[in-house]
Design a protein around this nucleic acid. Sequence first.
RNA 1: GCCCAGGUGGCGGAAUUGGUAGACGCGUUGGUCUCAAACACCAAUGGUAGCAAUACCGUGCCGGUUCGACUCCGGCCCUGGGUACCA
Length: 935
Amino acid sequence: MVYDPKQIEPKWQEYWQKNDVYKTEIDHSKPKYYALDMFPYPSGKGLHIGHPLGYTASDIMARYKRMQGFNILHPMGFDSFGLPAEQHAIDTGQHPAVTTAENIANFKQQLSKLGFCFDWDREVQTSDPQFYKWTQWIFMQIFNSWFNYDNNKAESIESLYAIFTKAGNTQVNAACDEDTPSFTAEQWNAYSADEQYKISLKYRLTYVADSVVNWCPALGTVLANDEVKDGVSERGGHPVERKKMKQWSMRITAYADRLLTGLDRIDWPEPLKEMQRNWIGKSHGAEMDFKVDGHEVTLTCFTTRPDTIYGVTFMVMAPEHELVPQLTTAEQKAEVEAYVEMAKNRSERERQSEVKKVSGVFTGSYVINPISGEKVQLWVADYVLAGYGTGVVMAVPGGDERDFRFAKHYQLPITPVVEGTKLDENGEVAEANPTKEGIMINSGYLNGMTCKDAIQAVIKKAEEDGTGTGKVNFRLRDAVFSRQRYWGEPVPAYFKDGIPYMIKEEELPLTLPEISEYKPTADGDPPLGRAEGWTYQDQYAYELTTMPGWAGSSWYFARYMDANNANEFANIEKTKYWNQVDLYIGGTEHAVGHLLYSRFWSHFLFDRGFLPYDEPFKKLINQGMIQGNSAIIYRLKDQSNKYISAKQKGDYDQENLIEIHVTVAALTGEDTIDPEVLRTWKPEDFKDAEFVADPDGNFYCTRRIEKMGKRYHNAIDPVSVINDFSADTLRCYEMFLGPLEQSKPWDTKGIDGVHKFLRKMWRLFHQFNDQGEFETSDGTPDDAEQKVIHKAIKRLTEDLERFAFNTPVSTLMICVNELTDLKCNKHEVLEKLLLIAAPYAPHITEDLWAKMGHITSIHQATFPKHDEKYLQESSFEYPVSINGKKRTTIKVPLDMPKEDIERQVLANDVVQKWLEGKPPKKVIIVPKRIVNVVI
RNA sequence: GCCCAGGUGGCGGAAUUGGUAGACGCGUUGGUCUCAAACACCAAUGGUAGCAAUACCGUGCCGGUUCGACUCCGGCCCUGGGUACCA
């Protein structure tokens, strides 16, 4: 009988499902283990080969831990709100809910073939009203909270009212809007309830404020940065401008410090923590006030280097800064306005990355240095960002590279203020010196101080003079929470006299209304503006924006613990049992998005007593991305229908070529394309296209390794791989491909080897009779057999304990090969082999396990432990090096003392030859490693 | 630009603490089995020189630390991810 996965795999998948093998209940007698995957967005293209990578790893860990006696929570669900379904709705008119349901059905169908041990009774879908009811509920709790810096915790808004009633707000140390006025208890108590409410809005952790967005007037909508290419919309190529709009935001900045220190308590990859730290970007420095000459206006800038205050030779404000018009002189007005208009269309990313393109304009105004009293020019330049710090920088070209480039370009003065700044032959500053190491020069009373002392000195003086204060600044910005979309959670808020109010908790969920079209309205309102009667109590307009994609994904992991609870988002007793996610697996692309927002919400829910932990993910592994190998062809810009073979690229004007990603299904070889496949693939683009092939008759494309995704048409369907081989093969192969954390392009080159391994394992159980039927023997295993299996158990266990998922496949292969060589068919040995292979290849091992006579699932059996007694060696073969270069080996008993080993080594022929009669300088013996003779 | 990661044979990768570089698999070459194929099995396989023993070179590039460096340090180059409204 041969290994026939087509027969085995569906059989056992059905068995597991029917017998509820993976159903999970709280069991206080067992330790728990929560293994979680980042849930997928159910795209229309279905599962791609990257999804099963992380899912397989967590599945292996879940099965392994289950076999070690843990109670496993291993659920799956769908992040089912999102842009693609909405875009599909705009294009076809099909309701996103319908598209999403179809896609989810397809995903589940595909997932079912991979043999994962998910407990599907706990499935969640973020677009399900029974789920988003609780997303809205959490939103309300955040709205009804404020952040108290005194104890660094979110508290109920009632407690803030209580403080105001007693003491006003002068003693309150809270996260709030900048324009919050001060008031006493008397003043507060004199306010009307409405006025009090209005003031409370400045403290609540969600609030409405102006935020800058990418506005596309032609499409009447806001675009994601992703949808903007070179300043125009990706769809249609319409101009995009940056515009301020009223948006809901969340005060994540209040949690900046806790999100920073919380990282120290979790087992995440250090680079990822580093990314989050940098994203939060805590920096110490000062805010300095510069008076504008001839105006009653002060410009405040944040700087991390107040010590360089004497090096300030000009000042720069962001083009969006609200004081730009006021501070521009009549002569400079036209130039400044033109510049501001130009800067409006450049994205923040462009502005930061194109450092070589220096641009800016003089306002005509001057500011006065608060320390030196010097008068310097005030400029506007787009390398200064409105959103960071105060949107104004004091430029120190001697110490900052961007300031330096700017000063060089516009011939502004450059003063070196730190000793050791490089000068050119004319004695002018040759390059900026950004280091904090050195002694101050050209800096008045600061001269001779170290930078660090000067920083303190300047802050002290500024605070005494009232011209500045020491300040901690964060790069992190509050999180914009509004999206001008249809397919997202409605915000459970309505407006009365322009003031936002929450609906009542018992009125949740606020379900998405039906609308006729999914586009924005003619006057630029979000799609919900089309919903008829979209009002609260028939009179107050509901919020028209919806929540962002990260809302649902910021708490879904808690819902799995109590997925069907209709009265609470998750019962606290249940969340106490399951607690933190023990192993969370997902891609690095979420490093600062999802993984920061989830931490934020968890910290919040913890503060308010809704969750028993603040850090949601105890251990995290960032799986690498399985990249696609895209196929790219070239179209001539001036002839929309003409495509040229990639090899002729050089013959054309590069500006005239447009790269087009085409489906990898059209590939006929490494880099050749069959144009006929393209004609049927996308008739609207290629039906009548002209393809200019090479003289050899081939039409070449360019291949490029990049993210696998819909837009690149480079995705591979895992089900096709299962059909060609088996689910067990795919699982093992995805692990075998390399370290989980590493990104790698998908390539099926080596998959045969893994498939062969499974066949070999199968044959191991069918090798002892002529019919090839299943047969094992009861004989006692000999030492060689014991050694093979115990070596494998040890290696595999050690590797899994350190979350190395790739090397165990090799270990299993070696074990099967060695047992085959030994012609081992001992029941005791083969049973252990099945047990250790079960997490990787659940179907084949389950089948063989049943054939061995077991009546319960192998996944409910106990994982074997290795016995050291079979692995003990009596001697060790040392590699012997001369001056670090390996020359020979020497085998000595393990317990031999170092002096005796040295004697043996020196007596060795090869060593003697190298020594040429002279004694060695040194002999280094590292036990069980190496002997190195230095001559 | 900024933040993070990676770079090892023809290919995917291994080397767990600074200690035999290339485990395991693919591919290639030669062979066994077969009427033939498929399957399977055996052998070789980093490069150069050599019949061989062996020698020299070799972990992106340049330099350093060390008895010894894929591993640690400094400087570059290239590739991938993120960069706040893709998910």
